[in-house]
Design a protein around this nucleic acid. Structure first.
Length: 423
RNA sequence: GGAGAGAUGGCAGAGUGGUCGAAUGCGACGGACUUGAAAUCCGUUAAGGGCUUUACGGCUCUUCAAGGGUUCGAAUCCCUUUCUCUCCGCCA
């Protein structure tokens, strides 16, 4: 949520910033609404102040056993006017609020301009795509030959866009998650958390999935709960409705969860394989930081995610997303793209964002420096990294001519020492 | 799922219709005393919004789990919901 005072006092600047995203703000509606708000709210408060004052006088009169009926009649008149003014104000405020919740975050100055992903700016590149002296296969072909990835089974049990894995691929998948978690805990100073995989409306509103992106979520109607689309939702909401002491910052959390996404509107995209699934696992990194530290934190968080790929020796590049490609809640985002030989392309495997105070404002997440007023926190999140996609990357980058897959060294301890997966 | 008890400030805990945003204690902060500290004493100490001010600030509204109701007036009375605890049932 953008700071309401910016919308009141600096509408033109807000509008210009959002324009960079290709988002046009309805300034006429907003300023008209704001003008009425000011009038009606003043009226309400004036009436209420009068009523409070009169009621107090009535109380005193009654204690002195005096007749207060004239004053009581007066307050009744005030109340009639107040009721109507109040309902006007409520309408205006809920309209304003609904508008506010649907406006994306302001962009950081360093975000490059551009309409779509073609304008993203490469920040760095690590290692080189492997050269094969045979034709590289994708993970679907590799998994089928090994008989360890089973899409028909997932369809039978559930539906399309789900996957079933057997044996050593299932184990490799688990190994990846365990490895990432341990790396972040032991090397990068994160605290592991285990949280619910379902979340309520307030939680999803806090991070910005609701109200605008409800169609992307799985919803359990009987219980009013949503399956989380990312651990970011539950982890970031740890600080919802709380005031964190400045000395405790930054908070750095790592959390391994399944993620559930309906993928509405992406029907034609990435239908082959397990690149885009309704259910996938992810190790998520979250920083809760003081405002002045959040951009340093973004670099750190991104580097922590990159460290996973470096340890796995998977080639990647890091790009700064341009204004048109950046997500709703983020002020700045780096995507990390891993090399996939099966697609002969770099594909997103992590997205690291600084949301500044956008989410903190929605969820009333604040910090306090000693003696000072509470201030909004800055929240950051990033995949560290997507486990399902990491599995694809390992399979495709470590494939051999005979269709076997060498297990990256750092994962072998999690694989009972096995060095390769063969049919 | 059944029965009962609860939800008040950073924490503990009083408050059952009127000057209550709320006693008291703890904690925190400032000051006095002290070489320093402890102890003691004095003082300050909830959040959010609006209007106003160059600024210090001033005025005002809201908030005692949430929503609704009764009333001139609600932390206090009534209804609904949520959550917590205890007992029973079921369950990994």
């Amino acid at each position: 949520m953008i700071a309401p005072h910016l919308l009141r006092n600096d509408l033109a600047a807000v509008c210009a910033n959002l324009q960079r995203r290709g988002y046009s703000l309805d300034t006429a509606t907003i300023s008209a609404l704001e003008k009425r708000r000011k009038e009606v709210q003043s009226e309400c408060e004036k009436l209420r102040a009068q009523r409070n004052e009169k009621s107090r006088t009535i109380g005193i009169a009654k204690q002195n056993k005096e007749d207060a009926s004239a004053m009581i009649a007066e307050v009744e008149t005030i109340n009639t006017r107040l009721t109507s003014a109040d309902s006007d104000l409520e309408k205006i405020q809920s309209e304003f609020n609904a508008l506010l919740l649907e406006i994306p975050n302001l962009l950081h100055d360093s975000v490059p301009d551009g309409k779509d992903e073609s304008s993203n700016v490469e920040a760095r590149r690590w290692s080189e795509p492997p050269q094969f002296d045979f034709t590289a296969q994708d993970h679907v072909a590799l998994g089928e030959q090994l008989q360890l990835i089973d899409f028909p089974l997932a369809v039978k049990l559930t539906s399309a866009r789900f996957v079933a894995m057997h044996g050593q691929i299932a184990q490799l998948h688990r190994a990846l998650g365990q490895f990432m978690l341990n790396l972040h805990i032991s090397q990068h100073g994160y605290r592991e958390v285990y949280l619910p995989f379902m979340a309520n409306t307030a939680t999803l509103t806090g991070t910005g999935q609701l109200p605008k992106f409800e169609e992307d979520l799985f919803y359990a109607e009987r219980d009013g709960l949503y399956l989380i689309p990312t651990a970011e939702v539950v982890v970031t909401n740890i600080v919802r409705d709380s005031i964190v002491a400045a000395e405790e910052l930054p908070l750095k959390f790592v959390c391994h969860t399944p993620c559930f996404r309906r993928e509405a509107g992406s029907y034609g995209r990435d239908t082959r394989g397990m690149l885009r699934q309704h259910q996938f696992e992810k190790v998520e990194l979250v920083h809760i930081s003081a405002p002045e530290d959040s951009y340093t934190a973004l670099e750190e968080l991104t580097a922590n995610a990159e460290a996973v790929l470096q340890a796995l020796k998977l080639p990647y590049r890091t790009v700064a997303l341009c204004s048109g490609d950046i997500g709703f809640a983020a002020a700045k985002t780096y995507d990390i793209e891993v090399w996939l030989p099966g697609q002969d392309a770099y594909r997103e495997i992590s997205s690291c964002s600084n949301c500044e105070d956008f989410q903190a404002r929605r969820m009333q997440g604040r910090m306090r420096r000693s003696g000072a007023k509470p201030e909004y926190l800055h929240t950051l999140n990033g995949s560290g990294i997507a486990v399902g996609r990491a599995l694809i990357a390992v399979m495709e980058n470590y494939q051999q001519a005979d269709g076997s897959i060498v297990i990256p060294e750092v994962l072998r301890p999690y694989m009972n020492g096995a060095e390769a997966i063969r049919a």
